[in-house]
Design a protein around this nucleic acid. Sequence first.
DNA 1: AGTCTTTTGTCTATTTATTGTCAATAATTT
DNA 2: AAATTATTGACAATAAATAGACAAAAGACT
Lengths: 348, 348
Amino acid sequence: MDILLTCAMKNEMQFPIKAVVNKTGLSPHVIRIWERRYHAVTPKRTATNRRVYSEADVERLMCLQSAITAGHSIGQIAQLPLEKLRALAQRNEPHLVPSVRAMASTPAVLSANTPPELGAHAYLENCLAAVQRFDAATLEAILARANVALGPLQMIDRVILPFVNRVGEMWHEGTLRVMHEHLATSAIRTFCTNLKGPQDLPATAPAIVVTTPTGQAHELGALIVALVARHHGWNAIYLGPNLPAEEIAAAAEVSQARVVALSIIYPADDPALPLELQRLRNYMRAEVALIVGGRSAGGYAKVLNEIGAITLHDAAEFRRTLDALRVYAKPAAVSSQALREPSVAASG
Amino acid sequence: MDILLTCAMKNEMQFPIKAVVNKTGLSPHVIRIWERRYHAVTPKRTATNRRVYSEADVERLMCLQSAITAGHSIGQIAQLPLEKLRALAQRNEPHLVPSVRAMASTPAVLSANTPPELGAHAYLENCLAAVQRFDAATLEAILARANVALGPLQMIDRVILPFVNRVGEMWHEGTLRVMHEHLATSAIRTFCTNLKGPQDLPATAPAIVVTTPTGQAHELGALIVALVARHHGWNAIYLGPNLPAEEIAAAAEVSQARVVALSIIYPADDPALPLELQRLRNYMRAEVALIVGGRSAGGYAKVLNEIGAITLHDAAEFRRTLDALRVYAKPAAVSSQALREPSVAASG
DNA sequence: AGTCTTTTGTCTATTTATTGTCAATAATTT
DNA sequence: AAATTATTGACAATAAATAGACAAAAGACT
């Protein structure tokens, strides 16, 4: 009962505008102008006239943002009720199961002006603890909770990536067993799947094939890459781990991908991998960029350099590269060929 | 007024031209010129003369596009009624519009007395076709669509399982490449993840560890097992493929699982596997049941018999076995370990 | 084949609407 | 004092509608 009461009262978590900016990725300008012009949200005010947003406001704004990238215009949709916005945004119900909400331990950190890193760090620690306890339910719950609290951007950079790295390290150290690693992988995979949702991309969205070369069994890196790419408006085609060079190249060809992204994490010294990478580069069309990332990518720097692969080290770099590569979309050699039509040659 | 009323009541989505562009892949030019020349669609207008398309308009345009790539000429078909366009397009609902439309197109098959196998079979064929075209988006769309039409039970027995089997066969035949198999795996995995959802299980739900032994890289069977188990009220702990015997046993121990389920699909004659299975049985507590299924389980019948594993052949048998095992829900020896408490260690 | 016509997609230019960003100022918070 | 926030009006950039012209492709015909 005490719990229920606390939840009911705390339920109205409130955020200053900067928190909303961090979560949604919208600029404060935009948030205010949407309010002024379209009454998209009507936050409460403090005694000194500062805006105070509710969770519902934040969800509204996130839905609006998604709907806009889906092609809707803000003026038309700003006043729609939340259910319709969810439908337009094709967003999965982000509200959580009661059990999750029960863990009202960390929100206090976030509602205040504390920088989000602190909150993110707390979530991260809790995730690692859950893995060590081999507690899948709690792990998934924390991930979901952290996601709504932090927003996708902070979530990926400050929770998911550090989490994956720590799990990898601890596995090496022997702090975690294989079963823990598998549990973490499964949870992260579930989370990524849920997060990406069934958003439909513009048919003109450039495609990127994401996978892991033969011998690289760890797929977490690739999963996150796919997630980030999709968030950046790419049509990410995720093929799971351990795919031979011919197959990767064929997949890129068939799906007319502009980029192939590989994640190289565990064996940092697989003697077969350099050859595999060279074969991949040979099979691929020259226009298709090859991006390689992951903790152990450095172990193959020589080959990667030879074949002209782009080696990346963090998510921010990856995002910048994606944006850069996307620009090359339009002036692609227009030889009156019908390759602008993204319709997959229906020669079936 | 009429417009507003209609919309409010029918709850219909409206799309500005950019959203239609995103959904269809047609250029705005083309959409407008089709309207001007052929009256292919007649969208409403806003007060400021912007076009506003209905869901029906969007579907029309998508069908027209498909029909065109199928060889029809726009001038001839632009004014045909929607049903004819659907037939012409031969598109079995590839890009489907979210939920509402899901009910609209095939209801004849399902709502009537017609046995649902017909519908299920059609979905199955479409899934296979999508895999062959390497069309992830359509594949996921069909799966989602089939699920709402058939319900989880029919879905698993008549679509998912046959689908997985066919993919496996075609992979052996060489009809499908590795990349196709990976694509199918990824889609099925996404589907299973979405389907299981954030269900709250009662704390008393018995636990079952689902995985694949070392050397068995194909995880689809295990995924489905986990899904079925969860639907039967079990707390399914899915650990992905390729897990060594010690790890499986430890996972079962830590999570106090009553059952360990393994899926054995591809190498039907791995010489190392029998030993691995024996080791698993030895590591596991005697009270924990070991269930083995999958196409190639028969290849290891001898060992499985020796170690007293329950070998299953179809989903129905698995469900019966689950129900039977659950009855044994006696207070299994509890070692007073406090690892059930999911209280988050707020070490932040 | 070559020529003509029809069909169909693309392009340009112009106008109007929409929407994001900026500048300047004042108040509040740290 | 420095940084953040709120308010307002103005501005720039983007997107959409319209009309007309053009170019590529597909057929039809010699």
